[in-house]
Design a protein around this nucleic acid. Structure first.
Lengths: 152, 152
DNA sequence: CACTAATTCGTGTACATACATATAAAAAGG
DNA sequence: CCTTTTTATATGTATGTACACGAATTAGTG
């Protein structure tokens, strides 16, 4: 769907302003499509993200700070997301012995199982819904990083 | 900043997966930069969006449904955003006489004033922080719309 | 070593999202 | 008309974001 239809507006100051809105809308679209798949597993987008991060280091443990540094949305409140994953027994939280300020977290085998099943469903979006070529995706990556070139 | 640094990961399944994360991260980056500017005016990103939508129709009124259809994030809870704008006297809410189910909303002159000041600050992001050409922005728009081609 | 500063994590609050449900009014169908 | 269905809005709940603050611990400095 064209942006103009999606937000019922065609008055953009210029292509750059339009690109800004297009990025925000596409992110929402992507997040919504993903969340719909994750719902069957009782996971939210952010809980899924934390599980993926933990699996990337498995069987190593990670402290809360390390997880936070890998989150896409940097202001995510990681302790609370872990609270919910812990209730569902998808992660285990223990105090660190090396640095008593730290809490270390590990993904459980139940967490790994649910993550693998969920990932199969989520990947459908990338493998069959999104139909750009690798080359186009690469061009997109370059443009997005150029937008963020001037940090802040 | 490169995505790899931003989320401290360089393991992407392919360029398309990476593009997905890049879109999500760029949207977060853009939203954060905007919110920082809006904070001086006591506005959130979403409140700003609603004010912009209302100004686009001014001096006409809009019902809640029309506003919702123009929001970028389609699940925004528009009645509650309007609650907060109403408390700050930036919009006026009245029952519709034509259709008693509807609530119609107008931006006040205070709302227009704050919106104009805020827009000047927000546009700095687009005019001087984001340094892509119009042609590049146009290419970006094409790619993003191609990604969303298969609706859902 | 003692004191200050910085770090790590948890928690509280305001606002927003996602979604289910409720309420009132309008539209549709017999 | 009267009943049923649909529509417009509001509200309730769980989760998440953004940010401030506090407690505990570690690091840094005189």
């Amino acid at each position: 769907m064209k942006l103009e239809q999606a937000i019922q507006s065609s008055k953009f100051k210029n292509e750059i302003h339009k690109a800004g809105l297009n990025i925000l809308y596409t992110a929402w679209w992507l997040k919504t499509a993903t969340s719909r798949k994750l719902k069957d597993f009782g996971l939210t987008h952010e809980q899924y993200n934390v599980l993926r991060i933990l699996k990337g280091k498995y069987p190593e443990q990670m402290c809360v700070r390390d997880i936070a540094g890998r989150m896409i949305e940097k202001n995510s409140n990681v302790p609370r997301i872990i609270d919910r994953l812990e209730i569902k027994k998808l992660v285990k939280r223990t105090d660190s012995s090396e640095d008593k300020r730290e809490t270390v977290v590990t993904i459980t085998s139940a967490g790994i199982n649910i993550l693998e099943s969920a990932t199969k469903k989520v990947d459908i979006i990338f493998d069959s819904v999104i139909t750009v070529s690798n080359k186009e995706a690469s061009a997109l990556n370059t443009l997005l990083e150029k937008i963020r070139a001037q940090e802040k």
